[in-house]
Amino acid sequence: MSNPILELRDLKVSITEKPDIQIVKGVDLTIRPGEIHALMGPNGSGKSTLASTIAGSPTYKVDSGQVIYQGQDITALTADARARQGIFLSFQYPTTIPGVTMVNLLREALKARRGEEVPAREFIAELRETLANLKMSEDFARRYVNDGFSGGEKKRAEILQMGMLKPDLAILDETDSGLDVDALRTVAEGVNALKRPDMGILIITHYERILDYVQPDFVHVLVAGRIVKSGDFSLAKEIEAGGYDPIMKELGLLEEVAS
């Protein structure tokens, strides 16, 4: 069996500025090359915290446990170092950066990822190709990062960056939220187009619908900071049909959450 891309070992995470509030309360997860994992769960279960923590957000603090990426303990590594090594987070709410064009951002990000200046000609060729793969116009790249973008455009901009940076681990944090069916299909097709057999993908979602387009190999249910159930794609279908209540009832968790 190939070595894992990502391993979370009994990971416990709190908010940096409120260390007494622990959000992730012991998560184990292993993602191997070529695998797509879906992390589902009700609002407030800690999904986005887990995504941000893997990416190295300073908003969160690891209390205990480890984040192992390609065999290396990266728990103490900064976000930029993680990104340069191939971790990519598609943000749930991508921020606006007026004055900085997508081209400038991509250029700097690619330079950082490769550790050297990318020749202009090569950069432009890659950008054109990626835009074409994602059915996006070149206009898009000339705009300021997320400035005046619609919800769908913001998510496509994230996927464009993923396409240029060619990560080994992509974390898609609620990439489906706020999208209509057409936008969702476009974004999902983009993810499929960029998928490589040597990469791992973690899709974080509240709803099952994105998983109809990007089919996961494994589905995990996160409740109150713990993975309470794992399974295959059929688990996502179960949740689609009945919501989270039956699972929590089955595990005797409903009271715990209610309190």
């Binding site: 190295g56 957000s57 976000a79 930029d80 990104a83 987070l89 950066i97 900085v100 700097e108 990822r113």
Partner: peptide, 27 residues
């Protein structure tokens, strides 16, 4: 938030600051 966004794309603090300042001056 913008700083973390750029860092999450691999830019170290200095590179991110340069890009943000250039963007700030662009208008």
């Amino acid at each position: 938030e913008a700083l973390f966004y750029l860092q999450s794309r691999g830019l170290d603090n200095r590179a991110a600051m340069k890009l943000l300042v250039a963007g700030f001056f662009s208008s």
